[in-house]
Write a protein that binds this DNA or RNA. Structure first.
Length: 618
DNA sequence: TTCTCACCTG
DNA sequence: CAGGTGAGAA
């Protein structure tokens, strides 16, 4: 035993430099078969001393690479970002504007009838219809609404029109008859749209609930549904209807406009809700954005009167409209599995990073997210009405979470059933809720900006409540740069994930597993080298063609679509030599012999490229 | 006590 | 890859 040899060997192993000094130092080390198999009670002491000396040296003495020690942060510095549960437990607002203004049941029906009347009036009457024309129309409508009761109605109308005046002029009668005819045609038209249902059965009330947001209902039906609803009720409460008509007859014009506005609001929010629902349910991700856009525009005709072109303004939490910056819809992250996408497993960074070395067209999914996760969300944290981005970004808001779960349930069936996802299902934030139309309606989806390919580009919408396989792939590629990522790095690279304690632990666990595999491979190949009689550490190199690299690449970069940085090869080579030397000197008899190696390797982390931080993992 | 880590196991 | 566990650090 020559302490100087040991000392030199271990010293050199700790002074491994990518610039070649490694070889110079380690070349002096020749594993002594006798020593490696003999009692190591002597050498380990020396080794330990040398290991301690290592710590005294400045980092620059270890590694010339600028990456050395660049990112090492002690695990204790890992910040566990507790769930930022903002607790937006807003109460459910009653969505019906009719019942909000009048608590009485009949009052609500009457108001609705009055609105239907106004709707019909708006459809039949010309824009310039005023004064007595409206008056006449209102009379006629009452007849038209119930054709089968015209015989009962006619005397009433005559009574109303004439008010007991027997000398009604013939011209007025003729005009009235014409109006009757007109409204009968209108009525027929409505019935046709309605599918021919003209029943006065009382079961209709259950048949057409006020907020019938059944997923099966077509948007076209949705648009006519409210009319059916009003109509069916009007047939039951005809007497009340007449009263309302009379009242409405004397209503001032501003009041009618207000009613019309109410109806429009009602219809708008209802139709948009249904459309959003149907889109989320029918959007197959492969669907072109043009289709989506067209669908929205077609299904929600009313929105055109409120919103221009590409924007849909939804009423959120009452009547307050929430206007969001366009950028917010741009930055919503891709979080769902996309089994339909054949290239879903292609990591988005692939071409980007490759492009640094060889020219290649960028991947469609690659785009810069101008939104940084904290910026908008932190500002709006205290708003009582959490707009959707806040919901999306924080994800932990229970109400919004539940709302997203509502339609998320649809996607569960197509989610890849990997453990990665199944874990998120177990997340405490995840609950199973039924698809409540009210929830869907109240999703507070903001100002959905329908832009060409914005939806497809972002591929939906929801902030991650869990890690996906794409996150796993990203993490694996990150391992090429950092073996011991700090929580800060993790947060930066997985900023599309809601960082909870669970998520953080899972990410840490992932890298722990990566390291485990990495070190196992290193030890295995180091032992193989010893068995194979490699006598010089200079004979231990890790190139892209080496078996060790292939094993590692197969594990972390299975698709082989990522250009592994040269630095990783250097680190792998250093690690392999560390293991080789340690095993050679019999250090492996110490139960904690790897710790010294871990200590060295953890200082070799590089900075994660910005591409990892700027892109979503989808 | 809490957290991270390595190790072992399935 | 994840769960469980014990060691060690803060």
């Amino acid at each position: 035993m020559n302490p100087s040899i040991w000392g030199k060997a271990m010293y050199s192993s700790s002074n491994i430099c990518p610039d070649g000094r490694t070889v110079e130092h380690l070349s002096s080390f020749r594993p002594d078969p006798m020593q490696s198999n003999s009692d190591v009670s002597g050498p380990p002491v020396t080794l330990q001393a040398d290991t301690e000396n290592i710590k005294m040296l400045p980092e620059s003495a270890y590694y010339s690479s600028s990456a050395a020690g660049s990112g090492y942060i002690f695990p204790s510095q890992m910040e566990l970002n507790a769930s930022r549960d903002t607790g937006h437990l807003s109460t459910r607002r009653h969505p019906s504007p009719a019942s909000s203004s009048c608590g009485h049941h009949d009052c609500g029906h009457q108001a609705k009838r009055a609105r239907v009347e106004n709707i019909i009036k708006g459809m039949t009457g010309s824009p310039g219809m005023h004064g007595s024309d409206v008056t006449i129309n209102q009379h006629e409508e009452s007849d038209g609404m119930q054709e089968n009761k015209r015989t009962q109605e006619l005397p009433l109308n005559q009574e109303r029109s004439g008010s007991g005046n027997a000398s009604h002029s013939q011209a007025t009668r003729k005009l009235l008859q014409n109006q009757h005819q007109h409204l009968r045609q209108l009525r027929t038209r409505f019935n046709h749209v309605d599918g021919g249902t003209d029943t006065t059965d009382s079961s209709n009330e259950e048949k057409y609930p006020t907020w019938n947001s059944s997923p099966e209902i077509s948007p076209r039906d949705a648009c006519t549904d409210s009319y059916r609803e009003f109509e069916s009720r009007s047939s039951r409460k005809y007497q009340g209807w007449k009263k309302v008509k009379l009242m409405n007859y004397f209503q001032s014009k501003p009041e009618r406009i207000k009613l019309m506005a109410d109806v429009l609001k009602y219809e708008l929010s209802r139709a948009v809700s249904l459309s959003v629902d149907s889109i989320f349910k029918s959007m197959p991700l492969l669907q072109t954005s043009a289709n989506v856009e067209g669908k929205l525009r077609t299904d929600v005709p009313l929105q055109s009167s409120v919103c221009k072109d590409t924007k849909v303004t939804l009423s959120c939490c009452g009547d307050a409209e929430v206007q969001l910056p366009d950028v917010q819809t741009e930055a919503l992250s891709l979080v769902m599995q996309k089994p339909q996408l054949k290239n879903a497993d292609k990591f988005i960074l692939k071409s980007r990073l490759r492009a640094h070395q060889r020219p290649k067209p960028p991947v469609p999914l690659s785009y810069d997210s101008a939104l940084h996760e904290e910026e908008p969300s932190e500002k709006n944290q205290d708003t009582t009405c959490p707009h959707a981005l806040r919901c999306l970004q924080d994800g932990c808001s229970e109400v919004s979470q539940a709302k997203f779960e509502a339609f998320d349930a649809h996607w569960n069936s197509v989610k890849v059933r990997s453990k990665v996802n199944s874990r998120s299902v177990r997340s405490p934030q995840t609950r199973t809720v039924s698809t409540d139309p009210v929830l869907l309606q109240g999703m507070c989806l903001p100002h959905v900006k329908i832009e060409s390919d914005s939806l497809v580009k972002n591929n939906l919408y929801i902030l991650n409540e869990g890690l996906t396989t794409n996150h796993l792939k990203k993490a694996k590629l990150m391992f090429f740069f950092t073996r011991y990522p700090s929580s800060l790095v993790l947060k930066m690279c997985f900023h599309d994930v809601q960082f909870t304690r669970c998520i953080t632990s899972q990410l840490i666990k992932w890298f722990s597993n990566f390291r485990e595999f990495y070190y196992i491979q290193m030890e295995k190949f180091a032992r193989h080298a010893l068995i194979d009689g490699v006598a010089d550490v200079r004979g231990l190199t890790v190139g892209r063609e080496s078996e060790l690299f292939r094993a590692l690449n197969m594990h972390y970069n299975k698709a082989n679509d990522f250009q592994v940085p040269d630095r990783f090869l250097e680190v792998a080579e250093i690690t392999l030599r560390e293991f080789y030397v340690a095993i050679s000197v019999g250090k492996d008899r110490d139960p904690s012999w790897k710790k010294a190696i871990y200590k060295v390797i953890c200082k070799l982390d590089s900075d994660v490229p910005a591409e990892f931080k700027n892109h979503h993992s989808g």
